[in-house]
């Protein structure tokens, strides 16, 4: 049953992919300022949404993990961390290309960019800690995720008051007509892809953890050396 649902959603996401591509290329008008390059926005902003969502999921899952000591929460946190790194990388690449088209530079140190880069690096650090943190890596990573998630609003405000260049008070509420539908469909697409990847990755984490536990138990029972 679950497998069937998964494949149904995978199918939906494929269809949605083609539909959004069609809409983006043929269904939306050219932007007055940026012409074609503005279309990157239909991918960049949804990816940023997913990054933030993934970090929040990782933070909440980590908190639940250390409070309840249930390995399943740790699986979710690990999966969310990895997917956050992926979507963060995508967001940075697409944002960089858009920035080159819009502002002429590949990078700028304004509030949103700095916060997103920092968030991404936090999740990269999370993955590093998971990998090289030794036996207590899960707790360490959980601590990082919690502190990091709490940190996000602080970083955003500190950098915002420091520099402002990004289109403030986003463009999103002001979208009209076909641009708006395309945008929200794109958001939906990326959210579905996020959930699909997350579920797959959680499954893998769980298997990894169970294999580890079985191995430990076998060692304890003296079955293996």
């Amino acid at each position: 049953m679950k497998q069937a649902m998964y494949f149904v959603f995978a199918g939906i996401s494929v269809l949605l992919f083609f539909y959004t591509i069609d809409l983006i290329f043929y269904g939306t008008p050219l932007d007055a300022g940026l012409y074609f390059n503005q279309k990157i926005f239909y991918y960049h902003v949804p990816q940023a949404f997913v990054l933030f969502l993934a970090v929040i999921v990782a933070g909440v899952a980590s908190l639940l993990y250390i409070k309840r000591r249930d390995g399943r929460y740790d699986d979710v946190a690990e999966a969310a961390g990895e997917v956050a790194v992926l979507f963060g990388a995508m967001m940075l690449v697409s944002g960089s290309i858009w920035g080159k088209a819009a502002w002429g530079v590949w990078w700028q140190w304004d509030a949103r960019l700095t916060t997103s880069l920092l968030l991404w690096m936090l999740m990269v650090g999370y993955m590093l800690v998971r990998k090289y943190g030794g036996p207590s890596a899960d707790r360490l990573a959980a601590g990082l995720a919690i502190f990091g998630a709490v940190n996000i609003p602080l970083v955003y405000f500190s950098v915002k008051i420091w520099r402002t260049l990004h289109p403030e008070a986003s463009v999103v509420p002001g979208l009209q007509g076909s641009m708006r539908t395309t945008f929200w469909l794109s958001v939906l697409l990326f959210q579905i892809v996020f959930v699909l990847l997350l579920i797959a990755r959680v499954g893998q984490s769980r298997i990894q953890r169970q294999v580890r536990e079985v191995r430990e138990r076998a060692l304890d029972a003296g079955l293996l050396d």
Binding site: G125, V129, G134, S136, L140, S158
Partner: peptide, 28 residues
């Protein structure tokens, strides 16, 4: 973080890795 890293092997390298992202607003 230093307490969490107490028994970790790569603690010297991991402490900056975990600490600096959290400290960024403070440093700013």
């Amino acid at each position: 973080f230093a307490a969490m890293l107490l028994r970790t092997r790569s603690r010297d390298v991991l402490l900056p890795v975990v600490l600096y992202p959290i400290l960024v607003p403070l440093l700013i």
